[in-house]
Amino acid sequence: MRSFYHYMMRYRGNQQADEEKQLADWMFEDHDFPKQATTYDEISRYLEWNIPFTNALSVFDRLFEAYQLEED
């Protein structure tokens, strides 16, 4: 199973400046982000302590659900 970080890198470089791109860019630039993580709890905890923008957690929740569907 690939990591959530790897899954999110598909949103980097999007022409459209949306929340998915914003989260992916932030994850790429944050050297402490748990890049090998595959579990909701580990990533969610990290985001709760290091929230990059106001609704980042809701964006994460939505994208993590899509990640799980694709990886299963």
Rank of each mutant, 00 (worst) to 15 (best):
R2E: 15
R2V: 15
R2S: 15
R2N: 15
S3Q: 10
S3L: 10
S3D: 11
S3G: 12
F4P: 13
Y5T: 15
H6C: 14
Y7S: 12
Y7K: 11
Y7Q: 12
M8G: 12
M8L: 15
M9T: 15
M9L: 14
R10W: 14
Y11D: 09
Y11F: 15
Y11I: 06
R12I: 13
R12G: 06
R12H: 10
R12V: 14
G13R: 13
N14W: 13
N14M: 14
N14D: 13
Q16S: 06
A17Q: 08
A17S: 06
A17H: 05
D18R: 06
D18C: 08
E19D: 09
E19T: 05
E19C: 02
E19F: 05
E20C: 05
K21G: 00
K21A: 06
K21R: 09
K21H: 01
Q22W: 08
L23M: 05
L23W: 02
A24M: 01
D25W: 01
D25G: 00
D25S: 03
W26T: 00
W26V: 00
W26M: 00
M27I: 04
M27V: 01
E29R: 08
E29Q: 07
E29H: 05
E29L: 07
D30I: 02
D30H: 04
D30G: 03
H31F: 02
H31W: 00
D32A: 10
D32P: 00
D32Q: 10
D32N: 09
F33H: 01
P34T: 02
P34L: 02
P34E: 01
K35M: 11
K35Q: 11
K35P: 03
T38V: 13
Y40E: 08
D41S: 12
I43A: 06
I43Y: 05
I43Q: 05
I43S: 08
Y46I: 08
L47Q: 06
L47Y: 07
L47M: 11
E48V: 09
E48R: 13
E48P: 01
W49V: 03
N50Q: 04
N50Y: 04
I51V: 09
P52Y: 07
P52M: 05
P52D: 04
F53A: 04
T54H: 05
T54K: 10
N55P: 00
A56R: 03
A56Y: 03
L57H: 02
S58H: 05
S58P: 00
S58F: 06
V59A: 07
F60Q: 03
F60N: 04
F60Y: 09
F60L: 03
D61P: 02
R62N: 08
R62C: 05
F64G: 04
E65G: 07
E65I: 11
A66W: 07
A66R: 12
A66V: 07
L69T: 11
L69G: 11
L69N: 13
E70C: 08
E70Y: 10
E71S: 14
E71K: 12
D72G: 14
D72Q: 15
